[in-house]
Simulated assay, not measured.
Amino acid sequence: MKIQRTFFKMAIGFIPLLFWHSMRGQGCVVIRHFSSCSGAFPQSGLLGEGELMLGVNYRYFKSFRHFRGTEEEPDRVSNGTEVINHSHAWDFTATYGISDRWFATLAIPTVINTRSSLYEHGREERNTTYSRGLADIRWSVGYWLLDPLEQPKGNIAIALGMKLPTGNFNASDIFYNVGVDGRPEVRPVDQSIQPGDGGFGISAEFQYYWEFLPKLFMYGGGFYLSNPREINGTRTFRETLNPLLENEAIMSVPDQYSLRMGLTRVLSEAFTASLGARFDAVPVRDFIGGSGGFRRPGNVLSIDPGITCLRGNFGLTLSVPVAVRRERPQSVTDLETELLTGTPRNGDAAFADYVLNLGLVYRFGRKGIPIDPDLRDAFKPAEE
């Protein structure tokens, strides 16, 4: 039983390190609420055959700091013209052990978003638009490349999955001072708070861990979500703001990706702590398919501290990535306009200072993976 406890502690000790569900990093740049299909717990693949792990993950951020390139525009906050997004998202995940090395994950996300701005309401007054409901469901199948029985101190997993267009990508609300004679008008909300993106996506993922010192682990991972669909047909009304934005009249269905790495330390039988870095991004151009329509490309580099508590079959984790570098690069429209006019152009985007991630899982069955007697010492704590 002690061997199984230690093994399970090792497996679940990486929980705060690889919080996939923050992929939609910080603010209205990394726009989709997309968790890795491996669920909130990176070692969820280390399940015995027939074992099941259920989880719920909550994520919150407030984006309000505007950037062009890597330069912040602090005057937007001081003069009250900043755009403010509040994003709340919940992922309900299930990970099943197909075998000791194969695993499958299903993630069902829901969101509640608000967006407060001046420019979307005729620049006359600040108003708020809302969206809520089911987001884009994801599933994946993964495989641990090394046999956990033979390589207990480190492993790497790869996974392939799909994102389904189950979220509403044409959610609408009332916009003020924009209709005929300044009347209110119902329009689609901004792309940053749409629950879905309207496209089928293909995800490629990886994750790894390695114990290089007793109770001290290195971790890492990432994914790339490819959205082959170019545009989803939802109107942005951006062409009414500036004729140069004519090609941004319809929303794009952009790719996105995330990378992370760091260290985790086992503090006790109940607690582990981690410190790492993560990089979340929406690229300017897609890997497959066209890149037309409106998108806000951007990326965020964050320092990601976390802590995990394990009690029985329950695991609780808290992770708070803090942005240290934010960039809104030139979009396709920016590049085309600069080429046409000869004048430098770079749109802006609002980012958050931090993201709050909170996760809870319950593991059904703790039989663990059978351990060869010759390998048992590898699972004993240093003090034993």
Rank of each mutant, 00 (worst) to 15 (best):
K367Y: 00
R123W: 10
H33L: 08
G276K: 12
G167L: 12
V332E: 04
P42K: 12
R376V: 15
I3P: 00
E336T: 12
F237T: 13
E51D: 06
G365A: 08
R123N: 11
I12C: 00
D100M: 04
A378F: 06
E185Y: 11
Y208S: 13
L106K: 07
R59A: 14
K163G: 11
V324G: 11
F67S: 07
R24D: 09
F34Y: 13
P373G: 14
P254V: 14
T95E: 01
E72K: 05
P188W: 15
L145T: 13
S117V: 11
I174N: 01
P16Q: 12
R229N: 09
R68F: 05
C37M: 11
L160M: 02
I288K: 13
T234S: 08
S226K: 09
L134F: 07
K215E: 10
G293H: 02
T114M: 01
E120D: 09
N79P: 00
E248P: 00
L54N: 05
E327V: 12
G69M: 03
C37R: 09
L358A: 15
G290Y: 05
I31K: 07
G179L: 12
C28I: 15
E120V: 11
E211A: 10
G154A: 09
L52D: 00
F271Y: 13
R126G: 03
V332R: 13
V332Y: 00
D286E: 05
V29F: 04
G201M: 10
G298K: 10
R138A: 11
Q256I: 12
R278Y: 01
Y119Q: 04
L335V: 07
T317K: 01
K2L: 10
N313W: 04
L160K: 02
R101K: 15
G312V: 08
W102T: 11
E49Y: 02
T343C: 00
P373M: 14
T129G: 02
S331D: 01
Y143H: 10
R376H: 08
Y176D: 01
L275T: 05
V141S: 03
L356M: 13
S22R: 12
K9G: 06
L106S: 06
W102F: 15
E73D: 05
F8N: 07
G161R: 08
I31P: 00
G39L: 05
L149C: 10
I108S: 02
G220Y: 06
I202F: 11
W102G: 02
G167S: 12
P381D: 07
A281N: 08
Y257K: 07
M162S: 14
S226Q: 07
